[in-house]
Structures are given as C-alpha cells and as structure tokens.
Amino acid sequence: MNGTKVDNPDVGELTAIARELRKKSLELIFRAGSGHPGGSLSSADLMAALFFAVMKYDSKDPRSPGRDRFILSKGHCTPILYSTLARAGFLSDEDLLQYRQINSEKFLSGHPHPKTPGVEIATGSLGQGLSVGHGIALAARLDGLPYRVFVLLGDGEIQEGQVWEAAMSAQKFKSNNLIAIIDNNKVAQDNLTKDLKDLEPLEDKWIAFGWDVHRIDGHNMDQILEVLDKPLHPEKPRVIIADTIKGKGVSFMEGEPGWHGKAPSEDLYKQAMEELEA
C-alpha cells in the first residue's frame, strides 16, 4: 500500500501501520544521532489514522487545492511526520536517509519546512500551528471548498498563549472545519507537563472557549477512528484531546521526560526495535 489512504480502513491494518511508523521513527533518530522519540511514539496511532484512513490527499499532487491539510504544530516530532509522509508516498525511503543531513534534497530538517512535499508551513516554534491552520480553514470557506484542517498540538505546547488566541479566533469565526488534536502525552522536555504548568481541567478550558470537545484514548484505534469520522459540528471548531503515553511502545521511554529529544544508544535501539516488533 503505497500512495494515499486505505479505502476501507481496518483497525488491525492501521495498528500495524502505526507500529511500522514507530519503528521507522526510531530508525531515523538512531541513524541521525538526534531527534525527538517521545512525542513521535505517542502520536503514531493518531498519525496512522489521519493519513491512512481519514484525510483526503494525493501524494503525487501534494498541492492540490481541495486536499485536507495537516499541520504538525509540535514541529519537533519530524521523525513520525517524515515516516508517515514516506509511507503515504510524499517521500521515498531514499529521501529519509537524508533526515537531519546537510544538503537534504527534500529538506528533511529537524523541524518541518514547506520545501518538503506534504508540509504546509514551517513549525518548530511552539504555539503557531493552530493560528496557521485557522487561516487555512477560513480560506477554505472563502473558496467554497469542503476540505478540513487538522492541527496536531503537543500538550506542553498549549502552555503557549497564542494557542488560546487562536482558540478564541476560531470560535469567533465559527470555523468548524478546523480540528485540533492534542497529543496529550503529559510529558514535556523538562518535566511532567502538570509540574511545569498544569493544563487541567483541560476539557473545561476548551468548552469555555466555545469548542466542540472530545476526549479519547489516543492509542485506541477504534476510538480514534470514531472521533475522526464524526461529521463536522455545525458551527464549532473541534478539539480532540487524545490521552497518550510519551514514548509509547518502548518500555524505557514511556513517560520519561529524558526521552523527549535524544537518540538511543545502539543497545537501547535494538531493545526498542525488539519491543516494537513484539
């Protein structure tokens, strides 16, 4: 299956894709000697569902006007993004060899840039993606196009005030084609997110900002598909709070701030790949 989405997504197949994306992400990080494993592993199931069951796009025509948009607002998680874009046909396996390498032909930088096919905008400074996504959502309405805009945010990221500026804007303009997904893995670079600055009660905050709020287990493919398949709310933008585990699938990375942004040693890499295989 190389190309776009699966026609009749099967939970088993999507779960297998997610596992494959996790392995590919770790491979990229290990080979590059740097990168961000924790938030890549936590968002793998969400990414598999978005790109292989939900979003409409044509990887051979990455700028087609009617495509659904995806923005990785938590821009440091390029391992999962590029792994996904490669599996979806935007990039080749050969391209992936140039991850974090100078002269990378597809510009596979540590953080995304639109020179890479499938990337809409540069991210890497947290807090900007929801506003960008909202601009695209407003343009869709002006152009009378039915596409949707998916923005993947980190939970630590929503400590940035601009996220809440965008939340107010989308409510004001009733931008129901904007869908924010929070990869709520509860761990940031320094510390547990709640100890940095607690986000809870998270659902209440988004409800108060006028959004259509859903909370799911971000590793349960049935729940992911169910919420992503819901028809758009008639007027509210939607936020999906996906409770996840940072470093999901690799025992020594799970829930550990220390695995936010570093590459494993060769021994640990082998162990991680074995665990993901199991």
Partner: peptide, 11 residues
C-alpha cells in the same frame, strides 16, 4: 500566523 495560513492557499 492566520495570515500565513491564508497565504498557503494562494490568498
């Protein structure tokens, strides 16, 4: 950033 989003669509 909202303006940047618009621009990605050709506005």
């Amino acid at each position: 950033c909202t303006a940047a989003g618009f621009a990605t669509t050709g506005k």
